[in-house]
C-alpha cells in the first residue's frame, strides 16, 4: 500500500506536469487538493476552472470536470457555471497576470458579486508561460524581459484589492507555508461567498534566474524570510514604523459574511 494521499484527485496519466523544475505551482496544487480532500468534496461535484498561463494549466492535471478557458476570463466562466448550477463546488486557479492585468475587471466584479467560489491566485510576479515578461505584480526594480532596466510601475496588492472589492475571505501565503496555505484554502472553501487566496510562488526559470536567485530553493528561502505576518505589519503601521523593504504581509486579510450569490441551494 502506498500513501500518495491525494492521488485520486490527480489525472495519473497526465503527470509529470509541464511546470519547470522547482516551480511553486505544483505545491499550490497539492495544498488546494489537500484542502478539497479535507472538505470531503466529491470529485464529481467539483469543478476546477482556470484561464491562461502557467497557473492555469493546473486543472488539466485534476481528475474532476475542469474548464481551461481564455486569458483572464476564468472568473466569468466560473460565474456562469456557479450561477447555472449552484450545487457544484467551483474552484478557480489563476495567476497574477491573468487575474490582475487582463482579467482585472472580471476579478473586481467577481469579488463584488461575492459568488460562492474559491479563487486561488498563484502569484509568481511574472508572466511565466510567455517567457518572463513584467506583470502588474512585478516588484519595482526587478528585471524581466520587458523591464530590462528594472520594473518602474508600482505593483498591485491583490489581497488588498480583493478586500476592497468585497470578497468574503482573503488570505495570502507563500508556497513555503504549505500548512498555512492549506488551512487558508480550506477556510476559503468552507466560506460562503468569494474566497480569494493569493499564493506567492517562486518562478525559478523566468523570475528567479534574472533576479539573483540561482536556485529554486533560494527564492523559497527569500519568501520565507521576507514574509511578515499581517498582525505585525498592522502593529508596525500603528507604531508609525516603516515596513522593511521588499517584505510582504502574509496571513488572513479578512473573513466576513457579506451576502453571497450562487450559494448551494
Amino acid at each position: 500500500m502506498t500513501t500518495r494521499v491525494f492521488e485520486k484527485w490527480y489525472r495519473e496519466d497526465r503527470l509529470p506536469h509541464i511546470f519547470c523544475t522547482g516551480c511553486g505551482n505544483g505545491t499550490v496544487m497539492n495544498c488546494a487538493i489537500k484542502a478539497v480532500e479535507e472538505m470531503h468534496w466529491e470529485i464529481d461535484d467539483t469543478i476546477f476552472v482556470s484561464g491562461i498561463g502557467c497557473s492555469s494549466r493546473a486543472p488539466g492535471y485534476m481528475s474532476t470536470d475542469s474548464l481551461h478557458t481564455t486569458h483572464g476570463r476564468a472568473l466569468t466562466f466560473a460565474t456562469g457555471v456557479k450561477m447555472a448550477n449552484p450545487d457544484l463546488n467551483v474552484v478557480v486557479f489563476t495567476g497574477d497576470g491573468d487575474a490582475s492585468a487582463i482579467g482585472g475587471n472580471h476579478f473586481i466584479h467577481a469579488c463584488r458579486r461575492n459568488i460562492d467560489m474559491t479563487v486561488i491566485c498563484m502569484n509568481n510576479m511574472i508572466y511565466g508561460m510567455t517567457g518572463g515578461q513584467g506583470s502588474p505584480c512585478t516588484p519595482v526594480g526587478k528585471i524581466s524581459t520587458t523591464t530590462p532596466y528594472g520594473a518602474t510601475e508600482p505593483v498591485f496588492d491583490l489581497a488588498e484589492l480583493a478586500v476592497a472589492a468585497g470578497a468574503n475571505h482573503v488570505a495570502r501565503w507563500t508556497s513555503y507555508h504549505t500548512k498555512e496555505l492549506t488551512r487558508a484554502i480550506e477556510t476559503g472553501l468552507a466560506t460562503e461567498g468569494l474566497s480569494f487566496i493569493e499564493a506567492m510562488v517562486q518562478c525559478p526559470t523566468a523570475y528567479g534566474r534574472r533576479n539573483k536567485f540561482r536556485k529554486a530553493t533560494d527564492q523559497v528561502e527569500w519568501m520565507r524570510t521576507h514574509a511578515i505576518l499581517l498582525q505585525k505589519v498592522r502593529r508596525l503601521e500603528e507604531e508609525g514604523k516603516p515596513i522593511p523593504e521588499e517584505h510582504f504581509a502574509v496571513g488572513e486579510f479578512v473573513h466576513r459574511q457579506r451576502p453571497a450569490m450562487g450559494v448551494r441551494r
Binding site: 500500500m1 492521488e7 522547482g22 505544483g26 505545491t27 495544498c31 489537500k34 504549505t178
Partner: peptide
C-alpha cells in the same frame, strides 16, 4: 494518521510518498 508530511506537500512534482 498522516504526520508531518512537509516534504510531500512542498514537492511540486508529487514525487514523494510512503510505502507500507
Amino acid at each position: 494518521r498522516q504526520l508531518c508530511g512537509a516534504c510531500q506537500m512542498i514537492c511540486p512534482d508529487q514525487a514523494i510518498y510512503w510505502v507500507e
